[in-house]
Design a binder for these strands. Structure first.
Lengths: 160, 160
DNA sequence: CCACATGACTTGCACCGTGAAGTGAACGCT
DNA sequence: AGCGTTCACTTCACGGTGCAAGTCATGTGG
């Protein structure tokens, strides 16, 4: 709109176009399918699940909010609201870090641990059904390498 | 919570776990990166872009709302609101189908066509940078097959 | 010792997406 | 013809997300 946005009209060839269509569809439908399953079985968002899963594997089931936000690929304001929701359910508690009052420590309660233990198998099962049962062993390894490469490109290219 | 949610404790092996982590990260960060670019350069959502791109390639730049919603992997209420927004910008018009008044035809205006033509190169360039420049030719073909298999599993497994 | 800068987190506001109810048009049955 | 059903679409209310501003605690220079 302002100036020429891109000097290069390098369009996608046929292989790339087909791949892009498949990937775009996947990025819309796979998260949607996983969210539906989690929502139906536990009333949890995928982000909330990721937060609880992360805490459940941390030492003392405790993490600093900022570290947890980075782990769950989210920003701090978002995590803060999610923590409020989980706190109301009694699945999470927050307290200031004794060694540095600027930090806040989030810990998963016993009920939270019990909940995630109940929820996880069905979720893992869904992931297995939708992803791994559909792929060969070789494709699983290929997908890992492909994912790593794209993620690497995003971190290197994207500002911030 | 109610009964045993899953009878099978088939956990992910090491390869699968690494792949799942990479894929989960990708599903969060790639759409976010693409949305940021579109938002910055044109104030458009990825869904809005998909709608306009779909219309731009349709005959007479016209599609029925329901077909367009299906094409863009979205539900009808969502498309309805998006169409309202695009209509306010003068990029889209709606009118009832002359042959069946229950349908609504959405058409891309000349300004809309001009806009998508201006926007598309930068978006394609971002896709190329983040995805295809990071992959080998073989990986592109692998990713296409993997995407097709997972999408197929979703359509077959997911209810509705 | 006090003012200021920095860093971590929370709150408020506006936007977007989802699900349920409402409208209006076309078909089928009597 | 007339009524009811089905279908496509819109509108509304609610919850989640992202961004800018505000709060609190900790270091640092005068």
């Amino acid at each position: 709109m302002v100036d020429r946005p891109s000097p290069e009209p390098r369009w996608l060839d046929d292989d790339e176009h087909q791949t892009w269509m498949a990937l775009a569809t996947l990025m819309v439908r796979l998260p949607a399918a996983l969210d539906r399953q989690l929502q139906r079985d536990s009333g949890l968002t995928h982000f909330e699940y990721q937060v609880m899963a992360g805490l459940s594997e941390a030492p003392d089931r405790t993490m600093r909010m900022s570290v947890l936000a980075c782990f769950a690929e989210g920003q701090l304001p978002r995590l803060s609201q999610v923590a409020t929701r989980l706190e109301k359910r009694g699945w999470l508690t927050r307290r200031p870090d004794p060694t540095d009052g600027r930090y806040t420590l989030a810990t998963l309660t016993d009920e939270g641990m019990k909940a995630i233990t109940t929820i996880a198998p069905a979720h893992v099962n869904t992931v297995r059904t939708l992803v791994f049962d559909a792929l060969t062993k070789a494709q699983v390894r290929h997908l890992r390498d492909i994912g790593h490469r794209i993620n690497h490109a995003i971190t290197n290219t994207t500002p911030r």
